[in-house]
């Protein structure tokens, strides 16, 4: 069918797929950030939220599948288009080349994208599967019992007394390592840069960008990217600098008190 042929083999078709998958990934990234920011609330909040997500079962897998497909398509298209473009440039390079207007973000999409890919793989091993730094992986630390009903915008997520995994402590302990935290910060900075061009570019690719509003769009996208970075910086940043300390009584508080991480020491 020519619909699929056009989408999967033409230049514009593959760009369109990248834009759509990019949009899905962007949506996830922002949603995930908002969810993660609950770390600054009561420990029960994020733990309840995580518990709720874990409990979704098939729905969770459906979302994961969509996300995985999005990443695969996004990366496949990026690689395929990039290889073609590199070959289209021809064998002989310019002796002198001058950039006229392209933004730094747009010129580094391939690198930022790849670093983000590497990060996501690491991150999933880190927090979802627990292969990296297993000693504080949520499965290795005691579960918690929620001391209150957890709600999101009035919507009940988990009831008081539920047994939940201690994601809160996992994050605190995880980010107490400066190496881990700095990698997160770096990766999210690159992701923000990726989004800075990506989100703007998406409108161009799907054909909804014009000189009537492109200047405003750039500003909005810039602010969003900045906000995204700020949010992501806040979590490891605050933990690392000690601005945010695990709530007393949590596993993380006890754990960090006995085995302080080097950076936390320095900060004191």
């Amino acid at each position: 069918m020519s619909l699929l042929a056009n989408l999967f083999s033409s230049s514009i078709g593959r760009k369109f797929l990248m834009a759509i998958t990019g949009l899905i990934l962007t949506g996830f990234a922002f949603g995930h950030l908002l969810g993660n920011l609950q770390i600054f609330g009561h420990p029960d909040q994020i733990n309840g939220y995580a518990h709720f997500l874990q409990g979704l079962g098939p729905a969770l897998w459906l979302v994961r599948l969509v996300l995985l497909a999005a990443v695969v398509i996004h990366v496949w298209a990026a690689v395929a288009l990039t290889l073609e473009s590199k070959s289209a440039r021809g064998p002989e390079k310019y002796g002198v080349h001058k950039w006229l207007t392209a933004t730094l973000a747009s010129r580094t999409m391939r690198i930022t994208g790849l670093v983000v890919l590497a990060f996501v793989v690491y991150h999933i091993l880190h927090f979802t599967v627990g292969l990296a730094g297993t000693d504080y992986y949520k499965g290795n630390i005691p579960a918690v019992t929620l001391s209150q009903d957890v709600r999101e915008f009035g919507f009940p997520l988990a009831a008081r007394g539920t047994e939940a995994e201690d994601v809160y402590s996992m994050i605190f302990i995880g980010f107490s390592s400066p190496v881990v935290s700095l990698f997160y910060i770096l990766a999210t900075a690159l992701l923000a840069i990726h989004l800075w061009h990506g989100a703007d570019s998406m409108f161009q690719t799907i054909g909804l960008r014009s000189n009537k509003w492109s200047a405003s769009l750039r500003k909005v996208v810039g602010l969003l990217a900045l906000a995204y970075f700020a949010g992501n910086l806040a979590i490891p940043g605050a933990i690392l600098t000690g601005l945010a300390k695990p709530a007393p009584g949590t596993y993380a508080a006890q754990h960090l008190a006995t085995t302080p991480a080097p950076a936390t020491q320095a900060a004191r």
Binding site: E84, S87, L100, A102
Partner: peptide, 21 residues
């Protein structure tokens, strides 16, 4: 577009160097 692709031109990444040049 299909002819353009077939001829081996590369793929746009919305950098706008073209309109500037």
């Amino acid at each position: 577009v299909s002819k353009m692709d077939e001829l081996g031109f590369g793929n746009c990444t919305n950098q706008y160097e073209c309109s500037a040049a």
